[in-house]
Amino acid sequence: NITNLCPFDEVFNATRFASVYAWNRKRISNCVADYSVLYNLAPFFTFKCYGVSPTKLNDLCFTNVYADSFVIRGDEVRQIAPGQTGNIADYNYKLPDDFTGCVIAWNSNKLDSKVSGNYNYLYRLFRKSNLKPFERDISTEIYQAGNKPCNGVAGFNCYFPLRSYSFRPTYGVGHQPYRVVVLSFELLHAPATVCGPKKST
């Protein structure tokens, strides 16, 4: 009989979030998941669920729940959905087409922007091929755009693959930082360890 609440607040209220290319994953298990708490945590810009209804979450049980978190800019949030393409979905964080879970995003301009520009958040701009779903690539190998090998040196047709967002508070919403948490629900042929409040007794 599990009584402890799932530590969603640790994920959502973390002081620092990860850069999207090096997104963070927390496995959540053996706890009571009260998803209604999430609705009250922040004024969400996005709370979209796929393959599951957000209002039914509190009635369900899962084997595992994974919470992935990272920062992107406002106009990239739409890429965090099944079947999307674009720089983020292709080279940084890719959801599977049959994704079961929820994408939660909110504006973090007050936390993640600086007047002089916050350069701490990076994204991958160049990659030889698209990522597979939930693949994480943290390599910093020089990207070869031409025929000549780069031998690890940046220059003509040889690019450092990561680029930094420079978040400034005066930017338009599309270029402001957004914190994203992706909850993916895993149903294996194994005992369910993460249940809503109704199912945990």
Score class of each variant (00 low, 15 high):
residue 43 P to H: 08
residue 111 L to F: 05
residue 100 T to N: 12
residue 196 G to K: 12
residue 62 F to P: 12
residue 53 S to L: 12
residue 130 N to A: 12
residue 134 F to M: 14
residue 190 A to Y: 01
residue 164 S to H: 05
residue 200 S to M: 08
residue 51 G to R: 08
residue 37 V to M: 03
residue 24 N to D: 05
residue 129 S to M: 11
residue 1 N to Q: 06
residue 115 V to A: 15
residue 37 V to F: 08
residue 144 Q to R: 12
residue 192 A to H: 02
residue 78 R to S: 00
residue 189 H to I: 14
residue 65 V to C: 09
residue 39 Y to T: 07
residue 16 R to V: 02
residue 117 G to Q: 15
residue 123 Y to F: 04
residue 55 T to Y: 03
residue 8 F to W: 05
residue 58 N to S: 08
residue 189 H to A: 03
residue 44 F to M: 03
residue 100 T to V: 08
residue 78 R to P: 04
residue 74 G to Q: 14
residue 174 G to K: 10
residue 194 V to A: 05
residue 114 K to W: 15
residue 32 V to A: 14
residue 154 A to I: 05
residue 113 S to A: 09
residue 46 T to A: 11
residue 160 F to M: 08
residue 200 S to P: 00
residue 36 S to D: 00
residue 188 L to S: 06
residue 73 R to K: 09
residue 27 R to T: 00
residue 63 T to V: 06
residue 77 V to I: 00
residue 198 K to W: 05
residue 114 K to H: 15
residue 118 N to R: 15
residue 41 L to I: 04
residue 153 V to I: 01
residue 122 L to T: 02
residue 43 P to E: 03
residue 2 I to Q: 07
residue 29 S to C: 14
residue 62 F to V: 13
residue 7 P to E: 01
residue 78 R to F: 05
residue 156 F to D: 09
residue 149 P to E: 08
residue 44 F to D: 06
residue 197 P to R: 02
residue 125 L to K: 01
residue 166 S to A: 05
residue 126 F to R: 09
residue 192 A to F: 01
residue 156 F to C: 09
residue 24 N to S: 08
residue 201 T to P: 04
residue 33 A to C: 11
residue 7 P to Q: 06
residue 59 D to T: 00
residue 36 S to R: 12
residue 24 N to A: 05
residue 27 R to V: 11
residue 153 V to A: 06
residue 155 G to K: 06
residue 39 Y to G: 04
residue 16 R to S: 01
residue 60 L to A: 09
residue 197 P to F: 00
residue 59 D to K: 08
residue 191 P to S: 01
residue 151 N to C: 11
residue 201 T to M: 01
residue 174 G to E: 02
residue 38 L to M: 08
residue 22 A to D: 00
residue 156 F to S: 11
residue 63 T to N: 07
residue 110 K to N: 00
residue 16 R to D: 02
residue 87 N to L: 01
residue 97 D to S: 07
residue 199 K to V: 00
residue 199 K to A: 01
residue 193 T to I: 07
residue 154 A to T: 02
residue 46 T to E: 02
residue 78 R to D: 10
residue 78 R to A: 14
residue 85 T to G: 09
residue 166 S to R: 09
residue 119 Y to D: 02
residue 55 T to K: 03
residue 60 L to H: 11
residue 5 L to C: 13
residue 145 A to S: 11
residue 105 A to F: 13
residue 173 V to S: 04
residue 37 V to K: 13
residue 184 S to V: 12
residue 196 G to M: 11
residue 138 I to P: 14
residue 67 A to V: 10
residue 134 F to Q: 14
residue 142 I to C: 15
residue 192 A to S: 08
residue 128 K to T: 08
residue 57 L to M: 08
residue 116 S to D: 03
residue 85 T to R: 06
residue 41 L to M: 00
residue 62 F to I: 02
residue 105 A to S: 04
residue 190 A to V: 12
residue 163 R to G: 05
residue 41 L to Q: 03
residue 16 R to I: 11
residue 118 N to D: 15
residue 129 S to N: 09
residue 109 N to L: 14
residue 115 V to N: 15
residue 46 T to W: 10
residue 90 D to Q: 01
residue 125 L to P: 01
residue 199 K to T: 01
residue 199 K to L: 03
residue 27 R to E: 04
residue 7 P to V: 01
residue 148 K to S: 04
residue 64 N to A: 00
residue 76 E to D: 14
residue 56 K to N: 02
residue 118 N to T: 15
residue 197 P to G: 10
residue 197 P to C: 06
residue 163 R to L: 14
residue 191 P to T: 05
residue 143 Y to L: 14
residue 201 T to S: 07
residue 111 L to Q: 11
residue 59 D to M: 10
residue 148 K to A: 12
residue 170 T to N: 14
residue 140 T to L: 10
residue 187 L to I: 00
residue 129 S to Y: 12
residue 201 T to R: 03
residue 18 A to S: 03
residue 26 K to L: 05
residue 46 T to Y: 04
residue 193 T to E: 10
residue 125 L to C: 02
residue 46 T to F: 11
residue 156 F to L: 06
residue 1 N to G: 06
residue 117 G to S: 15
residue 143 Y to W: 08
residue 37 V to Q: 01
residue 5 L to T: 04
residue 163 R to K: 03
residue 104 I to F: 07
residue 83 G to S: 14
residue 100 T to C: 00
residue 4 N to C: 13
residue 196 G to R: 11
residue 170 T to G: 15
residue 192 A to C: 04
residue 56 K to S: 10
residue 170 T to A: 15
residue 105 A to W: 05
residue 199 K to R: 09
residue 178 Y to H: 03
residue 39 Y to P: 09
residue 198 K to G: 06
residue 44 F to K: 03
residue 128 K to M: 11
residue 147 N to I: 07
residue 111 L to H: 09
residue 5 L to S: 04
residue 126 F to H: 02
residue 189 H to D: 06
residue 44 F to Q: 06
residue 42 A to N: 03
residue 134 F to C: 15
residue 115 V to F: 15
residue 120 N to F: 07
residue 192 A to Y: 06
residue 62 F to T: 04
residue 54 P to S: 02
residue 40 N to Y: 09
residue 32 V to F: 10
residue 55 T to V: 11
residue 54 P to N: 12
residue 155 G to T: 03
residue 44 F to I: 02
residue 60 L to V: 05
residue 132 K to T: 05
residue 128 K to D: 05
residue 193 T to D: 02
residue 174 G to L: 00
residue 42 A to K: 04
residue 152 G to N: 04
residue 100 T to K: 03
residue 64 N to C: 09
residue 132 K to R: 07
residue 44 F to V: 03
residue 122 L to W: 03
residue 170 T to S: 14
residue 115 V to H: 15
residue 132 K to S: 07
residue 136 R to K: 09
residue 122 L to F: 01
residue 7 P to M: 12
residue 109 N to S: 15
residue 186 E to H: 05
residue 120 N to K: 00
residue 24 N to Q: 13
residue 55 T to L: 10
residue 125 L to R: 13
residue 120 N to R: 02
residue 48 K to E: 05
residue 2 I to D: 05
residue 193 T to K: 05
residue 4 N to S: 05
residue 153 V to P: 14
residue 44 F to R: 01
residue 42 A to R: 07
residue 186 E to S: 11
residue 192 A to W: 03
residue 37 V to N: 07
residue 3 T to V: 13
residue 46 T to V: 00
residue 32 V to L: 05
residue 22 A to S: 10
residue 67 A to L: 00
residue 130 N to M: 05
residue 178 Y to A: 11
residue 58 N to H: 09
residue 29 S to T: 02
residue 45 F to R: 02
residue 178 Y to M: 13
residue 139 S to A: 14
residue 56 K to G: 05
residue 39 Y to R: 01
residue 60 L to R: 10
residue 139 S to R: 12
residue 156 F to E: 00
residue 4 N to D: 09
residue 5 L to D: 07
residue 173 V to Y: 09
residue 123 Y to S: 14
residue 32 V to Y: 07
residue 36 S to K: 12
residue 162 L to F: 14
residue 156 F to I: 07
residue 16 R to A: 02
residue 41 L to P: 02
residue 1 N to S: 13
residue 160 F to I: 04
residue 138 I to D: 11
residue 154 A to E: 07
residue 126 F to T: 13
residue 63 T to Q: 13
residue 149 P to G: 09
residue 154 A to Q: 00
residue 130 N to G: 11
residue 4 N to Y: 09
residue 7 P to C: 02
residue 153 V to E: 03
residue 116 S to Y: 15
residue 18 A to N: 04
residue 159 Y to W: 11
residue 132 K to D: 11
residue 114 K to Y: 15
residue 55 T to E: 10
residue 54 P to T: 13
residue 166 S to L: 14
residue 45 F to C: 02
residue 147 N to M: 03
residue 192 A to D: 04
residue 149 P to T: 00
residue 53 S to N: 00
residue 188 L to E: 02
residue 29 S to E: 11
residue 40 N to R: 06
residue 113 S to T: 13
residue 29 S to N: 05
residue 18 A to H: 06
residue 186 E to G: 11
residue 201 T to Q: 11
residue 44 F to L: 09
residue 64 N to L: 10
residue 120 N to T: 15
residue 46 T to N: 09
residue 201 T to I: 05
residue 54 P to I: 08
residue 188 L to F: 01
residue 54 P to A: 02
residue 37 V to I: 08
residue 189 H to P: 01
residue 152 G to H: 14
residue 187 L to G: 06
residue 154 A to C: 13
residue 156 F to P: 03
residue 178 Y to F: 01
residue 199 K to N: 04
residue 193 T to G: 04
residue 62 F to A: 09
residue 87 N to T: 01
residue 173 V to A: 10
residue 2 I to P: 07
residue 64 N to P: 01
residue 111 L to M: 01
residue 84 Q to M: 10
residue 55 T to G: 03
residue 188 L to W: 00
residue 4 N to H: 11
residue 114 K to V: 15
residue 29 S to V: 09
residue 117 G to T: 15
residue 132 K to E: 00
residue 193 T to N: 00
residue 200 S to A: 08
residue 144 Q to M: 12
residue 110 K to E: 00
residue 125 L to Y: 04
residue 138 I to G: 15
residue 151 N to F: 11
residue 14 A to E: 13
residue 196 G to H: 05
residue 194 V to H: 09
residue 142 I to Y: 01
residue 190 A to N: 13
residue 194 V to P: 06
residue 160 F to S: 09
residue 29 S to H: 08
residue 118 N to K: 15
residue 27 R to F: 07
residue 14 A to R: 13
residue 58 N to P: 00
residue 149 P to H: 12
residue 194 V to C: 01
residue 125 L to F: 02
residue 149 P to A: 02
residue 13 N to H: 07
residue 46 T to L: 03
residue 54 P to K: 09
residue 189 H to G: 02
residue 44 F to A: 04
residue 24 N to E: 12
residue 166 S to K: 12
residue 48 K to T: 07
residue 110 K to S: 06
residue 109 N to G: 15
